[in-house]
């Protein structure tokens, strides 16, 4: 599974994208974030406040409860500020 990070989430995590194999027990975005936070300080820093974290599963907006099984690409980013 490909993970992508944008804007300050990318800066705090210290990574733009990576390929990962998830432990089987991870069911949803919330579980994925908990697992990522065990992988280093950058992730802990990036995901410290989940109120300002947005995500997309296979390029569609998701939330903490969105299932991750079978997903090819999951992205994490701050609330959007275009326009």
């Amino acid at each position: 599974m490909k993970l992508l990070y944008f804007a300050w989430v990318k800066q705090k995590a210290g990574i733009a994208e990576e390929d990962v194999t998830l432990p089987g027990e991870i069911r949803d975005v919330s579980g994925l974030i908990s697992w990522l936070k065990t992988r280093g300080e950058g992730y802990e820093h990036a995901f410290a406040d989940l109120a300002v974290i947005r995500c997309a599963v296979d390029q569609e907006h998701g939330d903490l409860d969105t299932p991750v099984a079978g997903a090819k690409e999951i992205a994490f980013f701050p609330p959007v500020t275009g326009g």
């Binding site: 944008f6 992205a75 959007v80 500020t81 275009g82 326009g83």
Partner: peptide, 14 residues
């Protein structure tokens, strides 16, 4: 279109 774009489309300003 503008209201939706500003809250849904994945752009970020720095």
């Amino acid at each position: 279109l503008m209201d939706y774009l500003k809250t849904q489309a994945p752009f970020w300003k720095r």
